[in-house]
Every structure is written in structure tokens, then in C-alpha cells.
């Protein structure tokens, strides 16, 4: 937030021009000053609330993790997360298939002679050919919207990331033990795809919310450049590997008294370059 505030400080005065107020006017305008202070407090509170809303809005973060399956049939897009858990627990409820039926493929003719050359049709099963319910359509639209917003807001996200990193020095001393505790717990679960030709493609970062019991709240959101790079199959594989690690190693064992320090982890970065010797 520091750069955001400094930006506020530097911008606002330049927008105010005019002669300095005479000192004799202070007494006469004491009420005005008090009023300004109160209004200022109101503005600050509004500004703060607005910022929190923006921070918490899924649209402000890059791609929801749904993007990793954006090209395929997405069960989550058809069933809101809060009810999905019940469905997962009870397959009996799945009598009505949430997935689109497989698309029939028109088989390509086989080549006439060779036994070792076989041409077969490859069909994507994920092209839904049944009408979706309104609920499904809304969920699907949300997923698409999130994706579009995430891609459109790359510069903004990148700036936010930089801002956070700038503030890292101030809090890292106080929270270094928490970061180490998390790293030591997630180490065994993180299995990055280290065979990629370009190690930089594998660096991904999330905004992760944790419950007081160390469980993962909601879907971790990809942030910054890693969200923008999800079109790269290596980055997508890396993001999914990191996500599997986040889920598999949860719940996390962290000091409950300091929950406010670790309820949000952002950026939660996974960087395998050191593992790859690059």
C-alpha cells in the first residue's frame, strides 16, 4: 500500500492551486478546519472500505484457478463451490449427470494398406451439447468474466504485486517464522514439473486465504504475471502442481494467536528455478 499512499500524497497537492491562506483567517475558520478533519476521516474510511472491497473482490485478482481447466468441461462452472462439496460426498446425487455427454465422433476412414499407420479421430468431449441451466450459465459466465478481467488487469495486478513486495521488508522480520513454517509444511507436497525448457515459465503466485483452523478458504487466486501466463501450458501445469500442493498439505499448522498474520498469504509464490539449477 505504500506506493499507493505516496501516489495519493504526491498527486493531490499538485491538483490544489491558489494563494496560501492568511494566518488571520485561522481563527475565523476553526470550525471549518474541524469540519474538514471530520470529512477527511469520512473520506479515509470510505477509501479504506473501497480498497478492502477491491482487494476481496475476485475480479481484482487475476485468474481464478478455474482457468486451469477453462478449455475443458468444468464441473465447478456448473455447480457452485458451496454445494459442490455435498455432491462430491454423495455420488447418488449425481444421477443427473453434471457433465455434458460425449460428443459423437465421425470416424475417419482408415488408410487402406498399412498396419502401422492408423488415423483416428480425436474428439474433444468437452463441447457441451446440452442446454445448461440458468445456474450453470451464470457460473460459466462468471468463469469467463473472471478470465477476461484477469487478463485485462495485468498491468494493475503487476503494480499491486510490486507494491506488496516493497512492503515485504517491513513485515518479513515479524513473520519470517510463519513463512518458514508454511514452507516446511508444503515442501513435501510440492512436485513441480521441472522438465520445462524455460524455468521462468514455472514461477507462479497465488493469493491464498486460510481459515483459523489452517484450512484453505475458497479457491486460491493466481496473481500477477502468473495469471497472465496461463496460456502457456508449462505455466498452467506449474500452477496446477502448486495448487495440488496447497490442497494436499492443508490444513496448515500455524500459531492460532497470530491468525491475523497468516489468514491471507499473498503472494504465495512457487519458484522451482533453484531446484532446476537455473
Amino acid at each position: 500500500m505504500s506506493s499507493g499512499q505516496s501516489q495519493t500524497r504526491s498527486n493531490r497537492p499538485t491538483g490544489r492551486k491558489g494563494p496560501p491562506r492568511p494566518t488571520t483567517a485561522r481563527r475565523n475558520h476553526a470550525g471549518l478546519v474541524i469540519s474538514l478533519v471530520l470529512h477527511g476521516g469520512l473520506i479515509a474510511a470510505t477509501w479504506l472500505t473501497w480498497n478492502r472491497v477491491v482487494e476481496m473482490s475476485p475480479e481484482s485478482h487475476a485468474v481464478p484457478v478455474e482457468l486451469v481447466v477453462a478449455e475443458q468441461t468444468n464441473v465447478r462452472a456448473e455447480a457452485p463451490p458451496q454445494v459442490e462439496q455435498k455432491k462430491v460426498e454423495d455420488t447418488v446425487k449425481m444421477d443427473e449427470p453434471p457433465l455434458p455427454p460425449f460428443v459423437d465422433a465421425e470416424p475417419a476412414p482408415l488408410p487402406p494398406v498399412p498396419q502401422i499407420k492408423i488415423i483416428v479421430p480425436k474428439t474433444n468431449l468437452d463441447q457441451p451439447d446440452t442446454p445448461k441451466t440458468k445456474k450453470q450459465q451464470v457460473a460459466a459466465a462468471d468463469a469467463v468474466l473472471n478470465k477476461i478481467l484477469a487478463q485485462a488487469k495485468v498491468p494493475k495486478n503487476a503494480k499491486a504485486g510490486e507494491r506488496i513486495i516493497q512492503g515485504q521488508g517491513n513485515q518479513s522480520l515479524a513473520t519470517a517464522d510463519l513463512a518458514d513454517a508454511l514452507k516446511s509444511q508444503i515442501y513435501r507436497c510440492w512436485n513441480p514439473p521441472v522438465g520445462a525448457p524455460n524455468a521462468n515459465d514455472l514461477v507462479v503466485a497465488f493469493d491464498l486465504q486460510l481459515g483459523a483452523d489452517g484450512t484453505v478458504l475458497g479457491r486460491p487466486q493466481l496473481t500477477g504475471n502468473s495469471a497472465a501466463a496461463m496460456g502457456n501450458p508449462y505455466t498452467r501445469a506449474a500452477a496446477e502442481a502448486a495448487l495440488r500442493a496447497i490442497y494436499q498439505c492443508a490444513p496448515y499448522n500455524l500459531p492460532a494467536k497470530r491468525y491475523s498474520d497468516w489468514k491471507e498469504i499473498n503472494p504465495f509464490q512457487f519458484d522451482p528455478r533453484e531446484m532446476m539449477g537455473k
Binding site: M1, A242, E264, Q269, D271, E274
Partner: peptide
């Protein structure tokens, strides 16, 4: 404003560099 905003926006930053291939 900064004083009010900081605690609410503070997020733990973690950089995981070692995993288990």
C-alpha cells in the same frame, strides 16, 4: 489512512523454492 489500512491489507508473503520432485 495508512495507519488504518495497513493491518487490514497486510498479507503474509511466502516464496517456496524447494519441493519434492
Amino acid at each position: 489512512g495508512a495507519l488504518l489500512a495497513s493491518p487490514a491489507l497486510a498479507a503474509l508473503q511466502v516464496d517456496v523454492t524447494q519441493g519434492n520432485a
